[in-house]
Computed example of a mutant assay.
Amino acid sequence: MHLFKRGMIFVTFFGACIAMALLVASLGTKHWVNAKAKRVKNPMESDGKIHFGLFDGRKDLNVAYGWRTYEIDVIHLLKYEPEFLIYGFWLGTVVTICLGLLFSTFSAVFAAINTATTTSRCLTSVPGLYLWNFLALVSDIIAICCWIAQFYINIQYNVLSREDKDNEWTSENMAELGYSFWFVVGAAVATFVNIIIVFIANSEKEVETVIPVLEEKTNGAIMLY
């Protein structure tokens, strides 16, 4: 394999590692949603700050006499307060992030293999890198779409528990997508760049193969003379 091609493939190893790190960070951090909250009957004297990830988070509420902190258990709320989040979109987000992480791992491993040695097996060869990166990109995009749908259908109207709503708290139109979500967008971008790099590395092969053919024809002509 040409040195340039090996170098380009090795670059995709780092791209896949970046994607993996971002996806792991998105699963582990608690800022898929950031929101503020107010009490309907005394909005000027109340304030609330809420943030949570795919599994847990925190809310700080203040009703004129000091801040109180409460933990948010997303899994518990999904089970006992199904209106909190749409379960299908939440599950789709978690599953596709895990799939994206798996495929990015495959991409990194096989990029290292292709850099170290030449292999002819489809799934571990350079064309196989297209497959793993493409599957990772599709998984990331589905996760992004699931959470955007979750946000615009449900989250923007409420991020509070039933108890908070009964106490006249509201977060309507005060929520935004947090940095944990943008980690997934970053992973998708890194994977897309990987696909472009693999394409460039593969296109180099076409240039390389033309030269031996021309040399062979020239040598044949010389032999005839």
Rank of each mutant, 00 (worst) to 15 (best):
Y80R: 12
L78Q: 04
G66Y: 02
G88S: 08
R68L: 13
N62R: 12
P82A: 12
W67N: 12
G66H: 06
V63H: 07
L85H: 02
F55N: 03
R58C: 08
N62C: 06
W67A: 12
Y70G: 07
H76N: 14
I72T: 00
L61Q: 00
W90Y: 14
F84R: 02
G57K: 00
H76G: 12
L77E: 04
E71P: 03
V74E: 02
P82K: 04
Y70V: 06
I86E: 04
L85A: 07
K79L: 14
H76Y: 15
G57F: 02
E71W: 11
E81T: 09
V74Y: 00
E71R: 13
I86F: 08
Y70D: 12
E83D: 14
I75E: 15
D56Y: 10
Y87A: 08
T69K: 14
R58T: 14
I75A: 13
K79V: 06
L61P: 02
P82N: 09
G66M: 08
Y65T: 12
K59P: 01
W67K: 14
K79N: 14
T69V: 11
F89D: 14
G57W: 04
Y65G: 07
R68D: 12
V74W: 01
E83Q: 10
Y65D: 11
L61R: 00
E83M: 13
T69M: 11
T69Q: 15
L85V: 10
A64M: 06
R68G: 13
W90D: 04
K59G: 03
I86P: 00
F89H: 14
F84D: 02
F89Q: 12
D73W: 00
G57S: 05
W67T: 11
E71D: 14
